[in-house]
Design a protein around this nucleic acid. Sequence first.
DNA 1: GTGGGTGCAAAACCTTTGCATCTGC
DNA 2: GCAGATGCAAAGGTTTTGCACCCAC
Lengths: 127, 127
Amino acid sequence: MARKPVISAAILGLMRGHARHAWTLEDFRAALVEDEVAADFSSIFRAVEKLVAEHVVRKLILDDGRTRFELSEAHHDHLRCTSCGELIAVPCFLKPADFAVLERDAGIVVSGHHLVLSGLCRECRVP
Amino acid sequence: MARKPVISAAILGLMRGHARHAWTLEDFRAALVEDEVAADFSSIFRAVEKLVAEHVVRKLILDDGRTRFELSEAHHDHLRCTSCGELIAVPCFLKPADFAVLERDAGIVVSGHHLVLSGLCRECRVP
DNA sequence: GTGGGTGCAAAACCTTTGCATCTGC
DNA sequence: GCAGATGCAAAGGTTTTGCACCCAC
């Protein structure tokens, strides 16, 4: 090692310790400021970029055009809450059989997917 | 009317006449140049923006951070071909029952979705 | 000294807006 | 003349890069 990757460590700490699971660069910066870790966008960018290259973090691009990052955990899909705007992780319910039908009918080969639902999260849902 | 919306018409013509079904602003500009319709990005942008407001065209944001537009036709999902990079429309195979299970298990309410598959399109698939 | 990590500034990229101009009624 | 469409230029927002500096070994 040359110099301790303070920012990378702080970012991983944030991602592992917060309820939020999808972070923009701005989210990181704001949270780091709160933790009194002043960091430049470029440093955050490069730290996250490295984590992505190491497959520790995964890149997401959604409908607001801002890049988000989440921990590379087990596959899951997402719900964008139309009320509070949050991005929530939801378990994946797609089955290989679903793809098999599509592959047969459309002549394609499916190797992965990302499903983004829109609707209401648990908190915004009226009981 | 005040002035004929040349660009809007040209854009609709392109979208209805080409195999490509998801267009970036740059795609529009390049195609218009080929048709000898020189148009500025701002004009294209405003023309498409208007079509979106009229619900003739739908806005898409995918994993490369560029805004794309497609005709507002029946709902479908997409395949991003990992070989040629094209974005292909594929029929939707999700069923209400799938969402019902998710709503019960995750406590959310689903009102819409967008599924992006990755894999090989019909052309890139090795027979 | 060397190899990475960081900060600062600026470039790059794409989208969006302001303003003047032009067209067709 | 008016309303809407277009072109040009420039602003905006975010991501990305260049370069100098700094720290730990």
